[in-house]
Amino acid sequence: MAEYTAVEVSTSPLAPRRPKVLLSSVSSDSHTWNLVFLQLLLEETGHDVVNIGACVPDDLLVAECAEHRPDVVVISTVNGHGAADGKRLITRIRTDPALRGLTVVIGGKLGVAGAADHSCAAELVDAGFDAVFQDNADVGDFLGFIESSVPSLEVGV
């Protein structure tokens, strides 16, 4: 991630760079209101957002990460396949050497059983996510985590 920062800063030396968030859903999820909301929220809190939308195949997400070099990837999903799709997706991301250290979080309605799905959070972290935000998570906690995951931008820029 450090090398991404160096590249970006050199293109705009006068202003501190806004952290870049790549926002996406998983391959089988067509919902978009969650993505529209998160884009507005993240932009308002000082982030540049690349919103790549719904139904994003794993390979496309990996390609978009290579192209946009985000500081954080936020995966939002509400169709109930998030636990399964998320596990497959993060495994794919972590097999790419360039993306092994990238901060990737997932949130939303991750299974089809409502409150009974909450055990899947630990499995998703084990699979490689840096954080999991279930659908009752606090927005402040989410934003706090995003902020804390890009410390290199707050100092020395």
């Binding site: 391959s27 089988s28 999820d29 067509s30 139904c55 169709n79 109930g80 396949h81 399964a84």
Partner: peptide, 14 residues
């Protein structure tokens, strides 16, 4: 949703 997007491998895996 897998059938919807034509991901039949994911259906079988599920």
């Amino acid at each position: 949703s897998y059938t919807r997007v034509g991901d039949f491998a994911a259906v079988l895996e599920a």
